[in-house]
């Protein structure tokens, strides 16, 4: 049944695309008057992509227009953000905004063509995942202090994996080296998947990686979490300390939100935010976000915009330190 409905609606979209007049903004309540694109800066299939797809389904149902996820991965997410910057500010192009293109890339690539704060309206904060330091059980280390001592005793002996040069794992690991004085040896990977495979196989003894995707390994006993980069302990790893709690100033979160280019009418922004807030309250989304380990916190659009600006400023020196 569902398939037939889906095919029907796809046909309706195809017709709708052809017929809707370009101009003619009616009353502000008219939005959305044609299918809305949600740009995602990751290839399909990952957790962030799924967040976008799940919300797209909810918004399609509540707002009566199809919300279509469009994956535009590449160049540290700047491909998608650049496309968003260039899109018409009419609320029909959104982006699942996140840490890398908005807080890391503009510092790392000076030729990034947009300003992450001034060129966008950051509408809704969705949630965040935190970074964890995991070691292999074969090291027989289960607390942070022992690990730091062991690493200090043999500078450069312990390799750590990150999901790439300039990834948040890499940046935070270099911060860790700076703050603790424990020298580690960087092995970059192309994404988290291959890194976790090598970690499991015992090729790299240590990884800095987002917490949720490592929870099955923690449960199984093939990864030992030493500390997380949150400001307070997280629900999914209640027995694992934060770095700050252990006396090291290392805080990082990979946030997710919804952003538009600047200039979208206020009524549209409010309607979008309201619809998103409602979607995120629904039971199945809450359950889904919980299984994915998304840590949430209520934020207004204004607070979220300030948050993005503050994050941008906070990451600037970290990125610079890691990349030289």
């Amino acid at each position: 049944m569902t398939t037939r409905r889906d095919i029907l609606s796809a046909t309706v979209i195809a017709l709708g695309l052809g017929l809707s007049p370009g101009a003619g903004v009616l009353a502000d309540t008219a939005w959305p008057e044609k299918p809305v694109r949600i740009l995602v800066s990751f290839p399909p299939g990952g957790a962030s992509d799924l967040v976008a797809r799940l919300l797209a389904e909810k918004l399609s149902a509540s707002l009566g227009q199809k919300f279509v996820v469009e994956n535009k991965p590449g160049a540290a997410g700047t491909v998608a953000a650049t496309a968003l910057q260039g899109a018409a500010p009419d609320g029909h192009t959104l982006m699942l905004s996140n840490l890398t293109p908005f807080n890391v890339a503009p510092t790392r690539f000076p030729d990034t063509p947009y300003d992450p704060v001034a060129d966008f309206d950051h509408i809704t904060y969705i949630g965040a995942v935190h970074l964890g330091l995991f070691v292999a059980p074969s090291l027989e280390i289960d607390d942070l202090e022992t690990f730091i001592e062991a690493a200090k005793a043999a500078p450069g002996k312990f390799e750590y994996g990150s999901s790439g040069v300039g990834s948040w794992g890499h940046i935070i690991a270099e911060r860790f080296v700076d703050v603790t004085g424990a020298e580690l040896f960087h092995i970059p990977y192309k994404g988290s998947g291959p890194m976790r495979l090598d970690f499991r196989a015992g090729v790299v003894p240590t990884i800095f990686d987002a917490v949720p995707q490592n929870l099955p390994s923690v449960e199984e006993g093939s990864a030992v979490p030493l500390a997380v980069t949150a400001t307070q302990r997280i629900d999914t790893l209640p027995n694992v300390p934060t770095f700050t709690e252990m006396g090291y100033d290392i805080v990082a979160e990979n946030w997710l939100g919804v952003s538009t280019p600047t200039g979208v009418p206020a009524q549209v922004r409010e309607k979008l935010d309201a619809a998103l807030q409602e979607a995120m309250m629904s039971d199945d989304v809450v359950a889904q976000f919980d299984t994915w380990g998304l840590v949430r916190e209520p934020m207004t659009s204004a607070e979220f915009s300030e948050f993005v600006a503050a994050q941008f400023a906070a990451w600037k020196p970290l990125v610079a330190a890691a990349m030289d």
Binding site: P44, L50, G193, P194, L197, S217, E219, A287
Partner: peptide, 30 residues
């Protein structure tokens, strides 16, 4: 490897994992 290690070998396989994750099933050793 895709289902038992949770490591997709290709983007296509990553999408299949996505189809499972949307239903709350995390591919992995168990």
């Amino acid at each position: 490897p895709t289902l038992t290690l949770g490591i997709p070998g290709s983007t296509t396989m990553a999408l299949m994992l996505g189809a499972l994750m949307i239903h709350g099933i995390t591919p992995g050793p168990r």
